[in-house]
Lab assay of single mutants.
Amino acid sequence: SELMNSSKLIRMLEEDGWRLVRVTGSAHHFKHPKKPGLVTVPHPKKDLPIGTVKSIQKSAGL
């Protein structure tokens, strides 16, 4: 199965306009000026399962 580095996923979010608002432990929480909701990324993780990545991307509207 495909894995993604959390840094790469965070870069994709930031390029889309998401900004880090809070860190709780290894959970990084992002908000967007125009899009609704809060997106949480486990970080640092070298090997996020593709299912997790897809669900984060979906929440972020990517």
Rank of each mutant, 00 (worst) to 15 (best):
residue 22 R to W: 15
residue 58 K to P: 02
residue 9 L to E: 01
residue 28 H to F: 07
residue 19 R to P: 00
residue 52 T to D: 08
residue 56 I to L: 04
residue 23 V to H: 06
residue 30 F to E: 00
residue 37 G to P: 03
residue 45 K to C: 15
residue 59 S to I: 13
residue 38 L to W: 12
residue 10 I to Q: 02
residue 39 V to M: 03
residue 59 S to F: 06
residue 33 P to G: 09
residue 25 G to L: 12
residue 21 V to E: 09
residue 13 L to C: 02
residue 24 T to A: 11
residue 51 G to P: 07
residue 35 K to D: 01
residue 5 N to K: 06
residue 57 Q to W: 09
residue 61 G to Y: 02
residue 2 E to I: 07
residue 52 T to K: 09
residue 14 E to R: 08
residue 30 F to C: 01
residue 13 L to M: 06
residue 55 S to M: 12
residue 49 P to C: 07
residue 31 K to L: 13
residue 27 A to D: 15
residue 41 V to E: 00
residue 41 V to G: 00
residue 40 T to C: 12
residue 28 H to T: 05
residue 46 K to Y: 13
residue 22 R to M: 12
residue 36 P to H: 09
residue 50 I to K: 07
residue 60 A to Q: 01
residue 24 T to C: 12
residue 37 G to E: 05
residue 9 L to D: 00
residue 25 G to K: 15
residue 19 R to V: 13
residue 22 R to E: 15
residue 58 K to Q: 14
residue 51 G to S: 13
residue 15 E to I: 06
residue 1 S to V: 14
residue 61 G to M: 04
residue 10 I to C: 05
residue 40 T to H: 10
residue 43 H to P: 01
residue 44 P to C: 05
residue 59 S to G: 08
residue 16 D to A: 07
residue 10 I to K: 02
residue 39 V to F: 01
residue 54 K to V: 11
residue 13 L to K: 00
residue 57 Q to S: 08
residue 5 N to P: 15
residue 24 T to I: 11
residue 12 M to N: 05
residue 55 S to D: 12
residue 48 L to E: 01
residue 23 V to N: 06
residue 9 L to R: 01
residue 11 R to S: 14
residue 2 E to D: 12
residue 3 L to K: 13
residue 29 H to M: 14
residue 25 G to H: 14
residue 16 D to M: 05
residue 9 L to P: 00
residue 4 M to F: 10
residue 53 V to R: 04
residue 50 I to C: 12
residue 31 K to A: 11
residue 15 E to G: 07
residue 28 H to K: 06
residue 43 H to Y: 05
residue 56 I to H: 01
residue 62 L to D: 03
residue 23 V to M: 10
residue 6 S to G: 04
residue 26 S to W: 10
residue 40 T to M: 12
residue 11 R to L: 12
residue 49 P to E: 08
residue 37 G to Q: 06
residue 57 Q to H: 07
residue 6 S to N: 02
residue 28 H to N: 10
residue 55 S to F: 09
residue 41 V to A: 01
residue 23 V to E: 10
residue 27 A to C: 13
residue 29 H to L: 12
residue 6 S to T: 04
residue 45 K to S: 08
residue 14 E to L: 10
residue 13 L to V: 05
residue 39 V to K: 01
residue 42 P to T: 06
residue 37 G to Y: 04
residue 36 P to R: 12
residue 11 R to G: 11
residue 61 G to I: 02
residue 32 H to C: 02
residue 40 T to F: 11
residue 4 M to H: 09
residue 1 S to T: 13
residue 12 M to W: 08
residue 20 L to H: 04
residue 11 R to V: 10
residue 31 K to M: 13
residue 49 P to D: 15
residue 57 Q to V: 14
residue 11 R to P: 02
residue 5 N to L: 07
residue 27 A to P: 01
residue 33 P to Y: 07
residue 8 K to I: 15
residue 21 V to G: 03
residue 18 W to Y: 03
